[in-house]
Structure formats: C-alpha cells, structure tokens
C-alpha cells in the first residue's frame, strides 16, 4: 500500500495521555455550569467551553483538553476532532494580542495588503508567526463582517475598522 504520509505530528498529539488535568477557579466553574445548563445534550457545550479554556490558559493545551474531555464525558480524541475543525480554536500558543487582518475581497479592494505589510514591518514577524516575547501574533483571516468599514483587523475579540497607516501605528504602539 502506497499512501501519502499524513501529518503524523498533528494526529499523534491527541493520543498522548497527558498526566495533568487543568483546574479552574470556582467562578470559572460556575460559568461552565451555566453553559452546560443551556443544552439537553452536554456535548453541545463544547465550543463555549473551549473558548473558556482558551481564555484561561492561552490556548487549548493538553491539560485543558483533558479537562474538557473529563467535564464533557468524552474521549480526548473527540475534543481534538472538534478543535481541529474551527479556525478560532488554537492548538498552540498565540500572542497575548492576536492580530487577525481580514484579507477577503472587500477589504482587499480597500488595501488590506498594506495593512498586513504594516504589521509585518512593525512587529518584525511574518504572517502566521509570533513575536519572541509572546506579545503579538499575526494572521490573515477571511471576511469578519466589517466589509463596509474596510480595511480592518480584529485584535483578540476587538474590531478595529476603517484602518489607515496612522491608525495601525497608533493601535500597535498602544499595545506594545
């Protein structure tokens, strides 16, 4: 059988059984309970819970994944299966400020390339990378629903719209 080698690294991670399981404060646990209460089927809460784990731990790290599996009564692989599908779920660390420049058509028409280039220059990293101090990471993403206020980027969950060179400078300075 000649089969293309698939990305072993990505697939091999989920089967490692991490010894550590994440723990959270009672406040966060209560927040998780509130989400679980919304659904007749526990598994439905997987995305909201993943965002909470990500917020608390920076990304979906193995102890966080184990926590989710235990809390939702699922297998580790179930968690990874879902996590690998969605672009907002991070399986490796991202910057404290995660910059997501929209590159889709309406933004492209109004100069999103320039916005990306500005970020690249200013941060000294390429798209898809993170600064050495872990402060910024840069990515290009698809339409974020700000086409009428293009070009734009989102930093973490905050929208920054009608961007100009000066505005980008200002925003990045204020976070540096």
């Amino acid at each position: 059988m000649s089969q293309q080698p698939i990305n072993i690294q990505r697939l091999s991670q989920p089967v490692q059984m991490p010894d550590e399981i994440a723990t959270f404060s009672p406040k966060v646990e209560a927040e998780i309970d509130r989400h679980l209460a919304k659904y007749p089927v526990m598994r439905s809460a997987i995305l909201p819970l993943m965002f909470i784990v990500q917020r608390e731990r920076g990304y979906l790290d193995p102890p966080g994944v184990s926590y989710l599996a235990k809390r939702l009564n699922l297998r580790i692989t179930d968690i990874w299966e879902v996590a690998t599908f969605y672009s907002m779920l991070h399986l490796k660390p991202i910057g404290k400020y995660h910059i997501q420049v929209c590159k889709t058509l309406s933004c492209k028409l109004l100069g999103s390339d320039k916005i990306t280039q500005l970020c690249v220059k200013k941060l000294g990293i390429k798209v898809g990378e993170m600064t050495a101090d872990g402060r910024f990471s840069l990515s290009e993403v698809e339409c974020l629903g700000s086409c009428g206020t293009a070009p734009m980027f989102q930093i973490n969950f905050d929208y920054h719209e009608n961007l100009t060179a000066e505005k980008v400078d200002q925003i990045l300075e204020s976070l540096a």
């Binding site: 919304k38 995305l47 909201p48 993943m50 965002f51 969605y86 779920l89 993403v141």
Partner: peptide, 9 residues
C-alpha cells in the same frame, strides 16, 4: 440561549 461558533463559514 446564545451559542457561539468558532470560525467556520
């Protein structure tokens, strides 16, 4: 109830 997606068109 509100529910969140996670980035998938």
């Amino acid at each position: 109830y509100t529910h969140t997606g996670a980035g998938a068109y």
